[in-house]
């Protein structure tokens, strides 16, 4: 049995708004194992991202607790990396500047962090673009920078919040394939949020299907298909159908 990395224990989250309290996360208990790729899959506006933010420490849980490697998470920290849907790249920094940002603010020497950043830039296939600014890159390339930036801090856990949501269907296939290649080369514990079932089945070791607001875990699926997976393999399509039929309809 592999090691338990992230433990969400009875997590709930309520936002106070001007119209009263909104309960976004119901009561979620979830475990993520070391070097596992867990996909959080759920409909439209349900609390997927909020759950992810609670796990990464960007948001505080209202009740319950999140622990990573036994440490309780209550604030952001560099042992966790995040890849954002809207990339959240720093537009005034070059690709190199973005990727080396984490090591830099943590005080790593220039030569050391440059070397490390270069390694991850190469890993995501952006060699030659070190001095480009984010707005000079395509959507897919920007997301690669985001992945390299998150990796470069060498976190224990990577959180990915619908990183490919804004890409076209074909670029998305490419990014999914490449993400798996990168991950197989540099294994990390990954929690990946998506509302795309094809993406979920392609990437996941395990899929946690979430309900609509307030979010709870409806059911879980182990995906044991061998990698690289084939989008039109009959078993792939069967799983896809089966899991889609379980998920709540978005409004």
């Amino acid at each position: 049995m592999s090691k338990e990395m992230i433990i969400c224990d009875n997590v709930s989250k309520t936002f106070e708004t001007s119209r009263g309290d909104v309960n976004v996360i119901g009561n979620v208990s979830l475990t993520v194992n070391e070097n596992e790729l867990l996909v959080l899959f759920g409909p439209g506006q349900c609390g997927k991202s909020t759950l992810l933010n609670c796990m990464s420490g960007l948001e505080r849980v209202t009740t319950g607790s999140v622990t990573i490697n036994g440490r309780t998470i209550d604030s952001p920290g560099p042992d966790r990396g995040v890849v954002y849907q809207r990339t959240a790249l720093f537009p005034w920094l070059t690709v190199m500047g973005n990727v080396e940002y984490g090591p830099k603010v943590r005080g790593m020497s220039k030569s050391e962090r440059r070397e490390k950043a270069q390694y991850y830039i190469n890993l995501v296939g952006l060699e030659g673009f070190e001095n480009s600014y984010p707005n000079q890159l395509s959507g897919g390339m920007q997301q690669r920078v985001g992945i390299a930036r998150a990796y470069c801090n060498e976190p224990d856990v990577l959180f990915m919040d619908e990183p490919f949501g804004h890409l076209d269907a074909q670029t998305r296939y490419l990014m999914q394939e490449d993400l798996i290649k990168i991950w197989e080369k540099e294994k990390r514990t990954v929690v990946f949020v998506t509302n795309n079932i094809e993406e979920a089945v392609y990437l996941a070791d395990r899929i946690a299907v979430l309900t609509n607001c307030p979010t709870t875990v409806k059911t879980e699926y182990e995906i044991n298909l061998p990698r690289p997976r084939d989008y039109i393999d009959p078993e792939f399509l069967r799983l896809r159908e089966e899991i889609s039929s379980v998920v709540d309809k978005a409004l």
Partner: peptide, 22 residues
């Protein structure tokens, strides 16, 4: 953009660094 501030904190920046670099 608060998301950029969040991203910087997530990468390990302290308050002063968030101010100067973001």
């Amino acid at each position: 953009d608060p998301e950029l501030i969040g991203a910087a904190r997530m990468l390990g920046a302290n308050n002063r660094q968030v101010f100067t670099t973001i």
